[in-house]
Each structure stands twice: as C-alpha cells, then as structure tokens.
Simulated scan of single mutants.
Amino acid sequence: MKKIFPTCISNENILFLRAKLITGYYIVDILRWLNYKISNKFKKDKGIIGKLIEFYLIGNKQNNFSNQDIPHLGIEIKTITIDINNKIINDSFICSLPLINKNNLFFYQSKLYNKLSKILWIPIIIKNINTPILMRKIGHPFFWIPSINEKKKLHDDWDNLMKLLILGKIKYINFYNGYILLVKNKGNKKQLTKTINNIGEIISVIPKSLYLKKKFLYSLIKKNKNFIK
C-alpha cells in the first residue's frame, strides 16, 4: 500500500484533521488513494476497514497489543459501524482478556484501561448489513475520553471479571455481560490458551476478548449527532 502522510504525528489536531478529510468518502476511495490491491481474502477479513483507516491515518505501526495505536499521544483508533437509522451493527472489540497473567489485576494498570484512555472514533455508515464493503461511507470522526461515571462502570466490570478469574470460575467469564463490557470467545477450538480452574488445575480454553457493548456505543453516538451528516 502507498503511504499518504508522514508516520510521525506531533499532536491530536493533525490526526483529527486527517480523519476529517475523508468524511463523506467511501471505502472504495480509500482503496484508490492507498493503491490497495483487493485479494480473494478481502471480504473475509472482518477487520479490513479498520486496518485501511489506520494505515491511511498513521501508516505502518508497531506492535500495539498493550499500547494504543499512537502511544506518544495516548490515542486508540476505532471504527464504529452504524446504519442510517443510527443502529449500532456490532459490539466493538477492544483487547484480549488475560486469563493466566495475574500481575495485571488492577484496572488502572491493565491493557484495557490503556486502550480506552482516549479513542478517536471513525463512524462507518451503511444502509443495512448487506451494504458492500466498498460502498460503506465514512462519517464525522469524534474523540471520546471516559467520563468519571464511565470509568467507574468500566472499573466495576473489570473487578467483577478479575474476581471470577482469581476464583477460577472460568465458565462464568464466558459471555460476561457487564455495565459496559462484554466478553466473547476470540478464536476457535484449535486456538487454545491456558488458565487455572477453581481447583487449581491448569486447563486449556478458547481465548477471550473484551468488547464495548452496542448499547453503550449507542450512548456515545447520541452525544455526537452530527456524525452522519
């Protein structure tokens, strides 16, 4: 792919300006600008839109499993797919849930907190779920920093999950449905990770990931009503 901007971003205003420049354009336009060649795997890659938007904004990035997409600014970049009736299409993946590393039990030291400290949301507007990827429209970007109340709810969700993990109640972690967070399996039965059950045995389970719930995401877009105009 062809890089459009310098990788170095000195401040968030430059990042936001880059995001605003693509408002109203379609994914097919991004592909043209990046000189991206569509392969047979294109439609099967669920994260392809996010990858394209990130590459447009910041170019190649280093491994960011723990850090934000732009660590020196403390900003994560996320897309949020919405239909023309303001319906959120998917829960939003944030990061993996550690199942055996108990050194990061505290919320404010967690990968989750790091990822959610500040997010630049890029709305992706569709007519319905059958809208082709290439014809999905880019909406107005907006920044989000968790409020005090949101941080409290996130903290409560995290603490509830860590209690289950410490007690080895792994089956209760599956599809945890909290105030803001949701837990889902990430991977398949062939991709297993280790954890400890309630009697201290090391067992193999499907990896888990943390998502922001659609209901919560809808509350965010209600505060940013001009994102589709």
Rank of each mutant, 00 (worst) to 15 (best):
K2H: 06
I4N: 09
C8S: 12
I9W: 05
I9Q: 04
I9K: 05
S10W: 06
S10A: 12
N11Q: 06
N13Q: 14
I14Q: 10
L15A: 06
F16A: 07
L17F: 07
R18G: 04
L21E: 15
L21N: 15
T23Y: 10
G24V: 10
Y26F: 15
V28L: 02
V28C: 08
D29R: 12
I30Q: 02
W33N: 08
L34C: 02
Y36K: 06
Y36F: 12
K37E: 13
I38E: 13
N40Q: 10
N40S: 14
K41P: 00
F42R: 01
K43F: 06
K44E: 09
K44T: 03
D45V: 02
K46V: 04
G50N: 04
K51N: 14
K51P: 00
F55I: 01
Y56V: 00
Y56A: 01
Q62E: 13
Q62K: 12
S66W: 14
S66H: 10
Q68P: 01
D69Q: 03
P71H: 06
L73A: 09
I75S: 03
I77L: 14
I77W: 07
T81W: 00
I84G: 00
I84Y: 04
N85Q: 05
K87D: 04
I89M: 12
C95K: 00
P98I: 00
L99S: 13
I100V: 00
K102I: 12
N104E: 15
N104C: 02
Y108W: 13
Y108C: 02
L112K: 04
L112M: 13
L112P: 01
K115A: 03
K115M: 05
K118C: 13
I119A: 07
L120H: 10
I124D: 00
K127P: 00
N130Q: 15
P132T: 05
P132D: 08
R136I: 00
I138F: 10
F143S: 07
K152W: 04
H155N: 15
D156P: 05
D157F: 13
D159I: 12
N160V: 07
L161T: 05
M162W: 14
K163G: 03
I166G: 06
L167Y: 11
K169D: 09
I173N: 07
N174G: 03
N177M: 06
G178L: 05
Y179S: 14
V183I: 15
K184H: 13
N185D: 15
K186L: 02
K190I: 03
K190Q: 10
T193W: 08
K194I: 04
I196T: 12
N197F: 06
N197T: 02
I203R: 02
S204R: 08
I206Q: 12
I206C: 07
K208D: 03
K213T: 01
K213F: 05
S219M: 10
I221F: 06
K223W: 09
N224A: 10
N226V: 01
I228F: 08
K229H: 10
